[in-house]
Design a protein around this nucleic acid. Structure first.
Lengths: 244, 244
DNA sequence: GGTACGAGTTTGGAGCTCCAACTTTACGGG
DNA sequence: CCCGTAAAGTTGGAGCTCCAAACTCGTACC
């Protein structure tokens, strides 16, 4: 979770504080959130900031607004903001979460330079035809493939060193002085669900991929969400940061 | 797209108007959106409304804000708000979109009454143990399964007639005077991608499921997104309604 | 005891203002 | 012609206010 510096907008201070209380359990499900008026007093902020903080938390799915009554902590607020990290432990819920459950994480990667499809070229703001480096990361939990990430970046930024950590494309490109406005990436997760594959006329017991697609904007993640299943299943719900 | 009545909030009038222009192409990608000041004049609304309208459109992914410069129509703004419709044509992007591409849509359904899992019971605000009707819809594009929806509703609302259209649980339950706060549903889509299944050590050519999970709240969808692939692939991006 | 009403609280819509940070543009000097 | 600076425009943060609709709860009435 990105820490909130004291220089950050004040509404983020409020958001961070309430979010922390919800996630660590001091505000249990269905607990009432202080009202707008109370927040202004308690945090010494204006109504605008209090209101915006509540809206952000509601958009994250952590709280629900019951109009006329108040805001309440949502049932099962398993939340991990989807915002600019990757599998690697320092950046990512996946890594942290797998670790917390005693699952050892590893990964490998294969890169190749390919011609950009019109789609990719447009997203990376390149002129067609342009060579792009396509990198596929396979992330494993206890050896079993858990997640596959496909990332594209303009060719010419150099091959990553063999042991270089999975890197955030955004960070890397801005380090080279380039402006990145959008990143396309695909995330895959394993999920065996025989009953359902049957309904879809697939061979019974077929292992099935959970494919999740992340259209990732420099300004704001458009959408995405989900669930990881390494052997057993556990669930992560990603919320959309609603800032600003 | 839900029509905007004249009694609706004014910011929604602005949102609806700009959204229409973007979707019908009169505002092409990268076209500038009128600024806050211009919107207040052009639509005769206050700054608050203009600002909120822009924020909603940005959250929907239709426009990007470039700070200091302005708002611009986003590249490829394929947008279909994920908000209380289903596959069936009148309610749904899927149906409309498939149709637009000359794909015939069909569907079938199987219902069974099962015991609610703790999870489902809690979501439907039922006391455990409670019987719930589990319905699986398989939606097809030209006969090929495209989407699978699993929905739960409290048992006792009656079996749907064999030819009754896939129904919105929310609408149906409120018609019975009940209050529904959340709907759980699962959406599955087929996506064959041999190269990637190879990387994940699956049999080559295995057909793969795109699983997407929709946690659907009475107040606001927490998250979800995505893509449909019937034979060939085409893509839909769902945006989160950011209201209020 | 049960019901109906009203006062107080809370959210959401809408208006206004001011300012900092940033971008774009236009202008003038070298 | 080119470059640097200044002015104008735009977004985002933050403050304030007023009001309608909706909910809660306690009181008073039947």
């Amino acid at each position: 979770m990105a820490p909130v510096a004291s220089s950050d907008p004040v509404y983020l201070r409020v958001v961070a504080d309430i979010r922390r209380q919800i996630l660590d359990g001091s505000l249990p499900p269905d607990a009432p959130i202080p009202s707008r008026a109370q927040l202004t007093r308690r945090y010494g902020v204006g109504e605008t900031a209090a209101r915006h903080a509540l809206r952000v938390l509601a958009a994250e799915g952590l709280i629900v607004a019951r109009i006329g009554s108040g805001h309440y902590v949502r049932a099962k607020p398993v939340l991990l903001p989807l915002h600019r990290w990757r599998f690697h432990d320092h950046h990512v819920p996946f890594g942290a979460d797998l670790h917390a459950q005693g699952i050892r994480t590893t990964w490998d990667r294969r890169s190749e330079v390919v011609g950009a499809t019109p789609d990719i070229a447009q997203r990376l703001r390149l002129e067609e035809p342009a060579p792009v480096t396509l990198t596929r990361y396979v992330f494993r939990g206890d050896g079993k493939p858990v997640q596959l990430t496909t990332s594209y970046e303009p060719a010419g930024f150099g091959e990553p060193a063999p042991d270089e950590a999975p890197r955030a494309l955004i960070g890397r490109m801005s380090a080279h002085g380039a402006k990145i406005t959008e990143v396309v990436e695909e995330v895959h997760t394993r999920i065996p669900e025989p009953a359902e594959s049957d309904l879809l006329a697939l061979p019974a017991g077929t292992h099935v991929l959970h494919v999740e697609r992340t259209h990732w904007a420099g300004d704001r993640p458009v959408e995405t969400s989900d669930i990881v299943i390494p052997g057993d299943r556990f669930r992560l719900v990603y919320a959309h940061p609603l800032h600003p």
